[in-house]
Structure formats: C-alpha cells, structure tokens
Amino acid sequence: MGTYKLILNGKTLKGETTTEAVDAATAEKVFKQYANDNGVDGEWTYDDATKTFTVTE
C-alpha cells in the first residue's frame, strides 16, 4: 500500500486529495472517478517519484 496524491486544476474546482492504494493503476481509477464525480475532465499526468497525479482542464 502507498499514499497517492491528486492535484485538481479544474476550471471551477481546484484542490488536492489523497488515497491509499496498492498501486498507481488502482489509485488512478479512484482519482478518475473522483474527478468525474466533481465534473473535472482534462489532461492527466503522473509523477512516479512523488506518486502524484495531476489533472488540468
């Protein structure tokens, strides 16, 4: 398990959240659902060194 971070750079929603997941693929699924639930759809990037996903609208 590891802690993964999501940085939201949406047009109307900005912020950060974290999740505990077994791997990056699992964290990505959780974060994409979170972003979708909050109406954020954009370009995704992932930094393996910091376990950080970023979505920018």
Rank of each mutant, 00 (worst) to 15 (best):
Y34W: 14
T50Q: 06
N9A: 08
Y34I: 08
L6D: 01
N9H: 09
T19S: 05
I7S: 04
W44Y: 02
E43F: 13
N36S: 14
Y4I: 02
E57S: 08
K5S: 06
Y34R: 03
V40H: 04
T50H: 05
T54E: 05
K29M: 12
T52Y: 03
A49E: 13
W44F: 04
Y34K: 03
T52R: 03
D47M: 04
E20I: 14
T26Y: 08
K32Q: 08
F31H: 01
I7N: 04
A24N: 05
Q33H: 06
G2Q: 14
A27S: 02
A35V: 09
D47P: 00
T56R: 06
T50V: 05
Y46K: 01
N9V: 14
W44Q: 01
T12D: 11
E43Y: 12
E57H: 06
D41Y: 13
A21G: 04
D37V: 10
E43M: 13
E43H: 12
N36G: 07
F31P: 00
K51T: 04
D37A: 13
T52G: 02
K32G: 03
A49S: 12
E28H: 12
G39F: 06
E43A: 11
A24S: 08
T26I: 06
E43P: 04
D48K: 09
V30E: 08
N36F: 14
A25T: 10
A24K: 14
D41T: 14
T52W: 02
N9W: 11
A35K: 01
F31N: 00
D47G: 02
K11N: 13
T12C: 13
L6T: 01
T56H: 07
T45P: 00
L13W: 14
T54S: 07
D47I: 05
V55A: 03
E43R: 10
T12L: 13
N36M: 15
G15P: 04
V30M: 09
E28F: 14
F31I: 01
K14G: 05
T17H: 14
T52A: 04
E28C: 13
T17E: 06
A21V: 04
F31D: 00
L8G: 02
N38K: 14
G2W: 15
E16A: 09
W44K: 00
N36L: 15
Y46E: 00
I7T: 04
E57I: 09
K14Y: 11
D47T: 05
G2K: 14
A25S: 07
E57C: 06
M1F: 11
K32W: 09
E43N: 11
E16L: 13
N9G: 04
F53H: 02
T18R: 08
A21Q: 07
N9M: 11
N9D: 10
Q33F: 05
F31E: 00
E57Q: 12
N38F: 15
N38V: 15
K51D: 03
Y4C: 01
D37Q: 12
K14S: 12
L13I: 14
T45L: 09
K11Y: 10
A35D: 00
G39V: 04
T19Y: 12
D37W: 07
T54V: 08
E20N: 11
D47E: 07
V30S: 06
Y46A: 01
Y46L: 02
A27T: 00
A49N: 12
T19Q: 05
K51M: 13
F53I: 01
G39R: 06
D23F: 03
K14I: 09
W44P: 00
T50Y: 05
L6R: 00
D41S: 13
D47W: 04
T17M: 15
T17R: 11
T54F: 08
E20L: 14
N38R: 15
L6K: 00
E20F: 13
D41C: 11
G42M: 03
A35W: 03
T17N: 05
A24T: 07
K14M: 10
L8W: 12
A25R: 10
A35S: 05
T19L: 09
K32A: 05
A27L: 00
T26K: 06
T17P: 03
D41K: 13
K14N: 09
E57K: 04
L8C: 06
L8F: 11
A25I: 11
E28P: 00
N38Q: 13
D37P: 02
A24H: 09
A25L: 10
N38E: 08
V55I: 09
D47V: 05
A35P: 00
L13T: 14
Y34E: 02
V30H: 10
N9S: 08
M1R: 07
T17Q: 09
V40S: 03
F53C: 00
G10V: 10
N9C: 12
G2C: 13
K51I: 02
V22Q: 12
K14D: 05
L13G: 09
E16Y: 14
A27W: 00
N38I: 14
G15Y: 13
N9R: 11
A21K: 03
V30R: 10
D47C: 09
M1N: 11
T45K: 10
M1C: 09
A24E: 06
N36R: 15
L8S: 03
G15E: 08
Y46I: 02
T3D: 06
A49C: 07
A49R: 10
A24I: 08
E57V: 06
Y4S: 01
A27Q: 00
K51H: 12
E43L: 13
T52C: 06
A21P: 01
N36T: 14
N38T: 08
E20T: 12
L6I: 04
K14C: 10
T3G: 05
Y4H: 03
W44S: 01
T17L: 15
Y46M: 02
A35M: 06
Y4D: 01
N38S: 08
T54C: 06
E20K: 10
L13M: 14
Y34D: 02
M1H: 10
D47Q: 05
V30L: 13
T3P: 05
D41N: 11
V30F: 15
N36W: 15
K32C: 05
F53V: 01
F31C: 02
K29R: 13
F31S: 00
G10P: 03
E57T: 07
T50F: 05
L13N: 09
T12P: 04
T45D: 09
W44D: 00
